[in-house]
Design a binder for these strands. Structure first.
Lengths: 207, 207
DNA sequence: TTTAATTTGTGAATGAATTCACAAAGCCTC
DNA sequence: GAGGCTTTGTGAATTCATTCACAAATTAAA
């Protein structure tokens, strides 16, 4: 399959969100133009994005809301459940465990891990917190698909090396660090410092 | 000034992070090649990125670490202090308040706001939590530069309208929603659902 | 002082993503 | 069922971003 750009996948994700909204309101069809207006893009962009995967619309009419939503879920791999572990039982970890969006979209959090003896054993928002030393054994018993890394920058690379060695192929990283991983492992980084500096730049360099 | 791409600004932010690391280790100069290796990019990219703002290097030698760090701070607008408010005193808000990176980079959090009477008045990680109804008056007294929005999706647009009306020009949004704002307001969105779906897509569509 | 070795800064070339523009296809009304 | 109105799907054109490639500067060594 032709390589799909990251930006395209992000937009598909946004389209799905709007479609779910429309689904909830019982609307039957939607045009690329309407979808574009909601997503801050153009109708041509919407149609091009979808065209990489097939043609799902009806000319003159638009797209069936439930059908397109279903197709997007399929494309994005949301038809199944993904198993997630969280490494780092701090404040960010706690916020993530409490975040409803995870479960809603089929991401099931199995456990949190930490190296701090004060944290191990004390549930985080109801989720068991285990010793990071236990990781490999647990992974063998019930392999997670995704590891969310919420440890401080200094330990991020070490933790990631360990996660990769255990065979996990997808990482969501909250440490403001560039991580080194083998090419078959996918990393997405959420970098708050970078977003803030982006705002700082925008505020500083306005016309 | 020529428009600078978002991707460029994000890389500048990354370069600054590496430079600070080098600064801490007392290194005097660095080449574009070294900077590129750290940032997972190419030396030509590094030089092109910097060239939008001037020429800071010495041929044959590289860049002075402290000088380039200073220039980047200047470019990114980090020479000053930015005032930040947080709207939504939930788990994400709490994680942000506790996050050291904010203060380290000159972002001072003034207060948090919420509409829930159970939360108003009870400090969040030491930060005062005020009634959202008080927002306009507070903004007049001490105008914040940036509003961080951590309320649920349903209320995000309403809250943002209010923030915009109060005159704030930069928003960091944690709600998984596309926000409508006037063109002079900059929004950066951190969308965890989108990142997770990106990972789901990557796991689903591998060779 | 010359020569060899680095490394920047930047036009030119390439590659990637977005937008244009229009034929093809479906609906609706008369 | 003809004509008008919509809206898709998609090559072609365009715009934007990255990479190439090399002259110009600088250092270090001989």
């Amino acid at each position: 399959m032709k390589r799909i750009a990251d930006s395209t996948v992000r937009r598909l994700s946004a389209y799905l969100r709007f479609l779910e909204d429309f689904e909830g309101r019982g609307l039957a069809t939607i045009s690329s133009d309407e979808l574009a207006r909601r997503g801050g893009t153009t109708s041509a962009q919407v149609r091009k994005d979808l065209s990489f995967f097939g043609s799902f619309g009806k000319r003159g009419l638009g797209y069936s809301v439930p059908e397109l939503a279903g197709r997007l879920r399929e494309i994005l791999g949301l038809g199944r459940q993904w198993k997630v572990i969280i490494i780092g039982a701090g404040k960010i970890g706690a916020a993530l465990v409490a975040y409803r969006g995870f479960r809603q979209r089929g991401f099931r959090i199995l456990a949190a891990y930490d190296s701090n003896p004060d944290k191990i054993g004390k549930p985080l928002e109801g989720l068991p917190v285990r010793d990071i030393l236990q990781l490999e054994k647990d992974v063998q018993k019930e392999p997670p698909d995704i590891a969310v890394v919420t440890v401080p920058s200094e330990s991020a690379q070490t933790v990631v090396d360990r996660v990769v060695r255990a065979g996990i192929k997808a990482i969501l990283n909250f440490a403001p660090t560039q991580l080194q991983v083998p090419p078959d492992v996918t990393v997405k980084t959420v970098n708050m410092a970078m977003e803030l500096e982006g705002l700082s730049f925008a505020l500083t360099n306005r016309d």
